[in-house]
Design a protein around this nucleic acid. Structure first.
Lengths: 206, 206, 206, 206
DNA sequence: CGCTAAACGAGACGGTACGTCTGGTCTTTAA
DNA sequence: TTAAAGACCAGACGTACCGTCTCGTTTAGCG
């Protein structure tokens, strides 16, 4: 039996880890300067000081590359305990907005989501590297609020999952639409108004 | 013999009106089959039975063409009075979701919005042909709800505009995110849940 | 019925005759500077001030292009009447040697002949544009010598054709081998010696 | 002074003799299947069951490799005494033609000669491994004919060398041109005709 | 016997050229 | 003047080889 352990000492020269990093950084740089549609894999390779073949050996195309390059931007997302559900939501939304305010995210994220409408594998990749992480924050925020007593514990797990999805679409969708479609910043004032409506919608007695 | 339209005093061969329609239809057809990134102006011209020059004489590029082609899809959006604010919201959200469910809208709309992040003229064109129309529906729905007494009349006009923008971002963003990012349909059940939260957030006493 | 007359006014912009000439000239220039194996179609296009597509529209590859470029060099071959068979042979052999002394012919001709060993269409093209013209000179020289009485009239036409082929292979082969394999010039002295042997072989009583 | 004794017991693992043979055989095999221009060193290495580095350690490039691979084909050339100059010439020309009829020789030999027009080192290598051996046969045949009295002894050694070169160019050139350019076999009938003319040219009284 | 040093396989690396495709423009003839 | 057709320039595409390099792994001879 041969276990394909990830660090299995494969024969031949190992891939350069530096190249990976250089390519992803060059991709973000090119996204900032040129935007998605004028971004060229040849140009990215040149910026990274790397041959085109090195790039194609790792990523099968523009879409996959940009997903990975953009995904790294979301590594910094986290959910420190700010003491209340409202503060937690405001905090994470502001973090999210700050990332979307960066030009490499603006150009890149929307573009790959667009491409993903026709490419299931790409959609899965986006979900795995970007979306699921964000949804995890929603889950974490909710359980924390339940521990605080701000939200009731869940009864029906299926209903619960549906609500999490809904909240996630509302939060992410609103920030994305504000930032990328309306083209105005999701600043503190806007976030406060948004959080106010969302929270009241979730907690007010019907 | 062809009788010249009396108003067309211009010399030379008049532009074919049929060509415009054929080009836009061919564009939508190509969007469905190929998606944004693989759509080619040469291919569109061929589908429309038209020369490339004819196409370029009317549109300056891919972006402008697709904006116009997609904009026609939103002509059907309207806001019949369904008797209550909740019903009105549900109705228009479902209409919007139905449009976004069509593949030519999925591929095309997102793509031009993406391109618009780096092209102000394109953003203005999109706003004029697509977004403002939607925002008008929000305004219309609110004033109707105010006439019904479901919403209080606005005091501060600036605050009022801010709220309309916020609601618009929340509605459009949630539907778009649900449809294109989460990749699940914005069906009646989902719309009901969304409307419920949104409406309670807007009307519940804090 | 559609007659495909060569100057049939086909629709669309006609091909640029200047481009053809520029490409062939650039090809010869590149052959001189770089030789066959380092000659690049992209480079030829650049030298000719022409896009790669323009080149590929006319020639399907390097081989076909070089055949045509080299074939033009042989346009100058002719057979002026020098008064005797010996003088005629010496004259045409010297002409042939002069062409083979040019670097674009050295690199190009041998290379396409080499490629033709595996490509029947290419061999046919070479025969049509280069070889048959040379063989014509052999035929012309023989009939002229027969009129002068230097050679007897042919009896058996089949035998006659075989002899022409043999002489042609001997003449062209010897010059090519001397020039390209032995790498020494086929100068007047060499040509005189060669003509001497050949002529005696053809005319001496056995 | 550097003694380069062939079996100088150098430290380290000695080179595999089997690899050399396998590479040359694989080269000929690839020449037959693909021809010169489509032959790749990577493919040769794969066929030989050898790494590319092993190949490059021994040969500096495609040209050198093919020269050596083709040169081995000419090892079988020899000049048995057939009793007369005519028979000797016919015999060796037929041998030469038989080698040129093999596809690995057709593709390979011409190609390296072509390359050699721009590479002096390569030309020297070809001369050493292939051409000089053939010229030796001419010398041998002549001296044998002189012993038989078919040819007069040489007076002027310089004139003698010039004649040998000329004959060699005529013989090799005619066979190569017949085989590779005219594309017809140098069979017995053709060889007889050729030998007849050549021999009469050399021996008939002027 | 173990040490040393070169050869070995595998395959990644920076490059270059390939032949194709698309984007926009220009030039022709016909309507 | 517009239309259809298609040639034109420019340049990105993704692939194939080039010749070099870096690995880990033999495999010989010498100590």
């Amino acid at each position: 039996m041969q276990s394909r352990s990830p660090a299995a000492a494969r024969p031949g020269r190992p891939r350069s880890a530096a190249a990976d990093a250089a390519i992803l950084a060059a991709t973000r740089e090119a996204l900032v300067e040129l935007g998605w549609s004028k971004l060229t894999l040849g140009d990215v390779a040149t910026r990274a000081g790397v041959a085109k073949t090195t790039l194609y050996r790792r990523w099968s195309g523009k879409n996959e590359l940009v997903v990975d390059a953009v995904a790294e931007l979301f590594d910094e997302l986290c959910l420190p305990d700010r003491g209340s559900l409202a503060a937690d939501i405001e905090g994470v939304v502001l973090q999210f907005a700050a990332i979307l305010a960066r030009p490499e995210a603006r150009s890149g994220l929307m573009a790959v989501v667009t491409e993903a409408t026709r490419d299931d594998a790409l959609r899965a990749r986006i979900r795995a590297s970007i979306v699921d992480r964000q949804k995890g924050l929603v889950l974490e925020g909710r359980s924390r609020a339940q521990q605080r007593g701000e939200l009731p514990p869940e009864a029906d797990p299926e209903e619960s999952a549906r609500t999490v999805d809904l909240i996630f679409d509302m939060v992410a969708g609103a920030v994305v639409h504000r930032t990328l479609v309306s083209g105005r910043p999701a600043d503190e004032e806007w976030v406060r108004g948004f959080t106010h409506i969302l929270l009241r919608g979730l907690t007010a007695p019907s």
